[in-house]
C-alpha cells in the first residue's frame, strides 16, 4: 500500500504543472502556428489562408531589416561575450588576490534588467548628454561618437550594451569550467614541459567544450528573444534601423493589427530557436548514452 503510494506520489505532484505547461506553452505554440495560417487582424480569426502570411512576411523590408540585425547582433554578441568572458575567466584563474571581491563586480551587470541597461546606455551614448558631451566639456572638442544616432551603426550600440551586461555571466560559467579541469592533467602537462599558454590552448580550452556549448545556447536564445534592450536603448530607431524579430513580432501582432503576420514571425523565431536547441539536446543525449 505504502509502496504504491510512494510510487504514485511524484507523478501526482508533477501532474498539475505538467498539464499547465502542456496547455500554456505547447498548446499555445500550436495555436500560434494555427493563427499564422489565418487572416487574423486585430482579434484571432479562423479563415484559413495557408502560407500567405509567410510569403508576405518575407516580402517585407522591415522583416529583412530585423533578420539582418539579428544576424549582426547575434554573431557579434555571442562572439564578443564569449571572448571577453573567457579572457576574464582565465585572468581570474591565475590565483590572484581578492578574487572573491573582483568576481562579483564583473557578475553584477547580469543582475540588472535589460531595461535598466538599455536606459543607462542610452544616456551614456547620447551625444547631447553622454560621453561625447563630457569629452567636449573636458576640452577634447574633436571627439565624435554618435553611433546611437546613426542608422548604420545603431545596431552596434545594442551589441555594446548587451555585451557589457552578459560578459560577466559568461565569465562565471567559464570560471566554473576552468575549476572543473582535473589538476592532475595540468600537472602532467607541466612535467612534459608545456608552457602556460600552450596548456590553455591545447588542453584546458578543448576540455571545456561542454561549457562553450552551454554558453552558446544561453547567449543564442537571449539574442533571439532580445526585446527589452532594444526598446529601452533605441526604441527600434533611428527610423526602423534597430528592429529585431522580437520587436517586429510585438508590433505586428499587437499594435499594427496584423496578427497573422505577427504569428508567422513568431513561428520563424521558434524555428530559429529549435535549430539551435535541437542539435544541442541531440549531442547531449548522445554523449549521455555513451557514458
Amino acid at each position: 500500500m505504502i509502496d504504491r503510494f510512494q510510487n504514485w506520489l511524484p507523478r501526482m505532484v508533477l501532474a498539475p504543472s505538467f498539464f499547465l505547461v502542456l496547455i500554456f506553452v505547447y498548446g499555445f505554440i500550436l495555436y500560434t502556428g494555427y493563427l499564422s495560417m489565418t487572416d487574423s487582424k486585430m482579434l484571432p480569426s479562423y479563415n484559413w489562408v495557408g502560407f500567405a502570411n509567410y510569403e508576405k512576411l518575407f516580402r517585407l523590408r522591415h522583416w529583412n531589416t530585423a533578420i539582418t540585425n539579428l544576424a549582426i547582433f547575434g554573431i557579434l554578441y555571442i562572439g564578443i561575450s564569449s571572448a571577453i568572458g573567457l579572457l576574464l575567466a582565465i585572468l581570474l584563474d591565475q590565483k590572484i588576490r581578492a578574487e572573491g571581491f573582483i568576481r562579483p563586480i564583473y557578475l553584477y551587470p547580469m543582475a540588472l534588467s535589460f531595461i535598466v541597461t538599455g536606459t543607462a546606455w542610452k544616456w551614456f551614448l547620447d551625444p547631447g548628454i553622454g560621453l561625447e558631451n563630457t569629452m567636449h566639456q573636458w576640452g577634447w572638442a574633436s571627439f565624435h561618437f554618435n553611433w546611437i544616432k546613426d542608422r548604420n551603426y545603431a545596431i552596434y550600440t545594442v551589441v555594446i550594451a548587451a555585451v557589457w551586461q552578459s560578459s560577466g555571466f559568461v565569465m562565471a560559467m567559464f570560471l566554473a569550467g576552468l575549476r572543473g579541469v582535473d589538476n592532475e592533467i595540468i600537472k602532467a602537462a607541466q612535467i612534459d614541459g608545456a608552457t602556460g599558454f600552450r596548456i590553455y590552448r591545447k588542453i584546458i580550452i578543448p576540455m571545456m567544450r561542454p561549457v562553450f556549448l552551454s554558453a552558446f545556447v544561453v547567449l543564442a536564445h537571449l539574442a533571439i528573444k532580445a526585446y527589452d534592450l532594444v526598446v529601452a536603448l533605441t526604441g527600434g530607431g533611428p527610423g526602423r534601423a534597430t528592429e529585431l524579430p522580437a520587436t517586429f513580432m510585438y508590433s505586428y501582432t499587437f499594435t499594427r493589427n496584423q496578427m497573422g503576420v505577427g504569428a508567422s514571425s513568431a513561428i520563424i523565431m521558434l524555428i530559429m530557436i529549435f535549430s539551435i536547441i535541437v542539435p544541442y539536446v541531440y549531442s547531449e543525449l548522445r554523449a549521455g548514452g555513451k557514458r
Binding site: 487582424k41 523590408r61 522591415h62 542608422r151 530607431g237 533611428p238 527610423g239 526602423r240 534601423a241 508590433s251 499594435t255 499594427r256 493589427n257 496584423q258
Partner: peptide
C-alpha cells in the same frame, strides 16, 4: 487609414527622413 496601412506609411516616411531612401525611391516604396 487603418493601423496596418498607417504603420506601413510610417516605415517609409521615417526611413526617408533618416536618409535611407531618396525622394523617388520613397514614393515608389
Amino acid at each position: 487609414v487603418p493601423a496596418s496601412i498607417k504603420n506601413a506609411m510610417y516605415d517609409v516616411v521615417t526611413a526617408h527622413f533618416n536618409g535611407e531612401y531618396d525622394a523617388k525611391e520613397a514614393a515608389a516604396e
